[in-house]
């Protein structure tokens, strides 16, 4: 007597399917993403539309766009935005120019190139908060190595207070940020440089094109997709700058380095105004989302240009 094989139930089929297997693999990641990204975004959204002062009283009356309007009618909001814009433009421009130069150097067929590449990456490996503390020490008016070096070389007669004025401090923070981020920019641009066919340069050489002409006629046009991607990526990051400022100046002097992310932090946590702080966070998110959309578009274009 033969036994008829049991028909697998739907539940049983699901447990043995690839979908179940994939779900098992993804579950921990989904949990983590929900816990540290999705839930905080939703909760911040709730705070942004309610009058909440503290996380200990997370329920407050609904105020519509009241927090957004309060945030955006404050002088300190617009001055923080202005400073963020200055930081973003200057740091991104400096990183692109220096990064392109370093990428060219790393792409050159020179002896010990591997060593050069290893050394260049070191600043990028340093955590941002440590980088901030490091540069704070370098720029310290009394004990900083920069003043010591410049006075010993006879360039300065007396110590300079590098972080003592709003404009000066902002530029010093930019230097610290550029120093840390240039390696990343350089390596991203290096990837773009390496993809330019060697034959084009050989043809330019045959046509007796000078280095400058070659750079502007071959390197720059072919690098434009990579440059635009790196630029947008850096603009997004620079717009969110926080840790280097926290470590170096804490927003001072006279609010001179208080960027929008730092202003958001102090509003939410130091002033315990979660409602307005959350509205400010959402304004940052909207700006970043717009920049990300531009980034994705540029990325798609660059992929199209490679096809």
């Amino acid at each position: 007597m033969s036994k008829t094989p049991a028909v697998p139930t739907r539940k049983r089929r699901w447990r043995h399917s690839q979908g179940f297997f994939a779900a098992c693999l993804l579950a921990p990641a989904i949990l983590v993403v929900f816990g540290i990204i999705i839930y905080p975004i939703i909760q911040t959204g709730v705070y942004a539309f309610t009058d909440v002062r503290s996380a200990m009283h997370p329920k407050g009356p609904f105020v519509g766009f009241g927090n957004f309007s309060k945030a955006m009618t404050s002088n300190r909001f617009w001055s923080s935005m202005g400073r963020t814009l200055y930081f973003t433009i200057v740091s991104t421009a400096a990183e692109l120019v220096i990064g392109l130069g370093i990428a060219g150097l790393l792409n050159a067929k020179i002896r010990g190139r591997w060593l050069l590449r290893t050394v260049v990456v070191i600043p990028w490996a340093i955590p941002t908060i440590v980088n901030g503390a490091l540069w704070k020490g370098i720029f310290h008016a009394q004990y900083g190595s920069l003043n010591a070096l410049l006075t010993q070389l006879g360039i300065l007669n007396s110590y300079k207070v590098w972080l003592g004025t709003p404009w000066g401090a902002m530029n010093m923070v930019i230097i610290a940020d550029v120093w840390k981020t240039v390696p990343l920019v350089a390596f991203l641009l290096l990837a773009g440089l390496a993809s330019i066919p060697e034959e084009l340069y050989e043809a330019a050489k045959i046509d007796r094109a000078g280095r400058w002409k070659t750079f502007w006629s071959i390197t720059v046009p072919l690098m434009l997709p990579a440059i635009s991607i790196v630029m947008i990526l850096r603009v997004i990051e620079a717009f969110k700058v926080f840790d280097v400022i926290y470590a170096m100046t804490r927003g001072g002097p006279a609010d001179g380095t208080k960027t929008i992310a730092y202003y958001t932090y102090t509003t939410a946590f130091s002033d315990q105004n979660y409602g307005i702080g959350s509205a400010l966070a959402y304004i940052i998110v909207i700006v970043i989302a717009l920049l990300s959309a531009i980034y994705l578009r540029a990325l798609r274009r660059s992929e199209m240009s490679l096809i």
Partner: peptide, 12 residues
């Protein structure tokens, strides 16, 4: 704090 500093650095 910001106001005191603004006066000390001479911007106001």
């Amino acid at each position: 704090q910001a106001a005191i500093q603004a006066a000390l650095v001479g911007s106001k």
